[in-house]
Amino acid sequence: MAHIAVEPDISLSNPTLVEGLPGVGLVGKIAADHLVETLDMTYYGAVHCDGLPRVAVYHGDSSELKPPVRLYADEERDLLVLQSDVPVSPQNATDFASCITGWLTDNDVTPLFLSGLPTEKDDDVPAVYGIATGDGDALLDEAGIVPPVESGLVSGPTGALLYEAGRHELTGVGLIVEADAQFPDPEAARAILENGVKPLVDVEVNTEELVDQAEDIREARERLAQRMQQAEEGESTQAQPLRMFQ
């Protein structure tokens, strides 16, 4: 049976939830993981929604198993983070979104949904835009977050979550950041934390580590481009294992 099992000894009052499902540039995943680690958030509960793979997750230096999709809490900040180690398939997105939205509504949780907008990368700070469900427009106005400059849609499980939130008139915000379509993009994750999550939740998060990750990934991309060029010049077999960088 679909449900979310939470720890009874953690007390929250009208919390905000940051959703961190894998997507374009892994923006949501990187941002959520960074919040959990940097704020030293407490494990809050397991998400047992239909559509999630029945797998167990373990982390290095620990024998403890955890569900693939979990909630973490910061009681002092009234903050929740939805952390996921697995993607939600498009076929299962509707059931998953219905399960999550029902719990959000029942517990007076305001969600922040994170999504990457595939964009050609340049040296500028990735732009962050906001869309809203329910009374979320007021939250965006107060935080000074502008709407997207072009029409578009949010697909996948995050799109399903936004759809369900809108259908139930749940107050929520969707944050959209310009992100790399092929590679993990910690630079975009940093932008969405600094220019989206921070003004909405009023939480200070050190993002310097994400800057270092962005530089490492940029260097890996340059090495990949060089080796791909070599492959095109006659060493095509060398390009095959480079999928690890994508």
Rank of each mutant, 00 (worst) to 15 (best):
A239E: 12
P22E: 10
G116Q: 04
L39H: 04
L200E: 00
Y44H: 08
G51K: 03
P68T: 07
P8D: 14
A132F: 08
E64K: 08
D61N: 14
V6T: 15
P53Y: 05
E64R: 15
V125S: 07
E64M: 10
T38E: 09
N195S: 10
Q91T: 12
Q240M: 14
C49Q: 06
G60A: 11
P90M: 14
D85M: 13
V203S: 02
D74M: 08
D122L: 14
D202H: 08
R221W: 10
A93M: 03
G152Q: 03
L161A: 05
G234W: 15
P184V: 03
G156R: 09
I30H: 00
P118G: 14
T119E: 01
D212R: 14
E194I: 03
R221P: 03
V201I: 15
D85T: 08
D61T: 07
K121S: 14
H168F: 11
S89E: 14
I217A: 08
L82S: 00
D216K: 10
A220T: 14
H34A: 05
Q226T: 09
V211M: 04
F113P: 02
M41S: 04
V81A: 11
E169W: 06
D180S: 11
P53G: 06
V88N: 06
P22L: 09
E76G: 08
G196D: 01
A143V: 12
D85A: 09
E76M: 13
D135C: 00
D95T: 14
V201M: 02
T101G: 09
I217H: 14
E120N: 13
A188I: 09
C99G: 06
T105C: 09
R223G: 04
L21I: 05
D108P: 11
S62G: 10
P68W: 10
I192V: 13
E222N: 08
L65D: 07
F113L: 15
T16K: 15
I176L: 13
V146T: 04
E120G: 13
I131A: 01
L82N: 00
A97C: 12
G25W: 02
H48C: 03
D33K: 12
H48F: 15
L140P: 02
R218H: 06
I145C: 00
T237F: 15
T171W: 02
L112E: 02
G144V: 11
N92I: 07
V173D: 05
P157Y: 10
V109Y: 02
A179T: 10
G136R: 03
V205R: 05
D123N: 14
D141W: 04
K121E: 13
L80R: 00
V149A: 01
A143K: 04
V69H: 00
V197Y: 01
R223Y: 12
E7V: 06
A189S: 15
I100L: 13
Y43H: 07
L12F: 01
